[in-house]
Simulated assay, not measured.
Amino acid sequence: MAQAHLEAVLREAFPRAEIVVEDLAGDGDHYRARIVDEAFAGLPRVRQHQLVYRALEGRMGGELHALALETAAPPKEAN
């Protein structure tokens, strides 16, 4: 899966998110993605990652071999 395609899929699922995708091996198969989105607020890490995998619609293990995920909700603003 091309890096641009992976990023587009993630941006479609999380349109307001801060997303950074890095190709770890230069082979189009091993990526790291950092996604910061309100959708993750209050969710445990496992649930956050499940939302990302759902957005990938079964591409993991086929089109996409490895994806290291870092997910978070944006920090709360101080009043």
Rank of each mutant, 00 (worst) to 15 (best):
M1I: 10
M1C: 08
M1Y: 03
A2V: 04
A2Y: 02
Q3M: 11
A4F: 02
H5G: 01
H5R: 07
H5P: 00
L6K: 05
E7G: 04
E7Y: 02
A8K: 10
V9W: 07
V9I: 15
L10D: 03
L10S: 02
L10K: 01
R11K: 15
R11I: 00
E12Q: 15
E12Y: 07
E12I: 11
A13D: 12
A13I: 02
A13L: 06
F14R: 03
F14A: 04
P15N: 05
R16W: 04
E18V: 04
E18T: 06
I19W: 01
I19P: 04
V20I: 08
V20H: 10
V21Q: 05
V21S: 04
V21F: 01
V21E: 04
E22D: 14
E22K: 14
D23Y: 07
D23E: 11
D23P: 03
D23K: 04
L24C: 05
L24N: 04
A25D: 08
G26M: 09
G26Y: 11
D27N: 10
G28D: 06
D29I: 00
D29C: 01
H30I: 01
Y31H: 00
R32Y: 04
A33K: 04
A33N: 02
I35H: 09
I35V: 15
V36R: 08
D37G: 09
D37M: 10
E38C: 03
E38G: 10
E38A: 14
E38L: 10
E38W: 08
A39C: 06
A39D: 15
F40N: 09
F40V: 07
A41Y: 14
A41W: 13
G42N: 13
L43F: 12
L43N: 03
P44G: 11
R45E: 10
R45L: 15
V46A: 14
V46S: 12
R47C: 04
Q48A: 14
Q48G: 11
Q48M: 09
Q48E: 15
H49Y: 09
H49M: 10
H49I: 12
H49S: 07
Q50C: 06
Q50N: 11
L51V: 08
L51C: 10
V52T: 06
V52A: 05
Y53E: 05
A55R: 06
E57M: 00
E57G: 00
E57K: 15
G58H: 06
G58C: 05
R59S: 14
M60H: 03
M60W: 02
M60R: 01
G61M: 10
G61P: 08
G62Q: 13
E63Y: 00
E63F: 00
H65T: 05
H65R: 15
A66F: 07
A66V: 03
A66D: 07
A66N: 07
L67P: 00
L67F: 05
L69K: 03
E70I: 08
E70V: 13
E70C: 10
T71H: 05
A72T: 03
A72L: 03
A73M: 12
A73P: 10
P74I: 12
P74N: 12
P75Q: 14
K76Q: 13
E77A: 13
E77I: 00
E77G: 13
E77D: 11
A78L: 09
N79F: 11
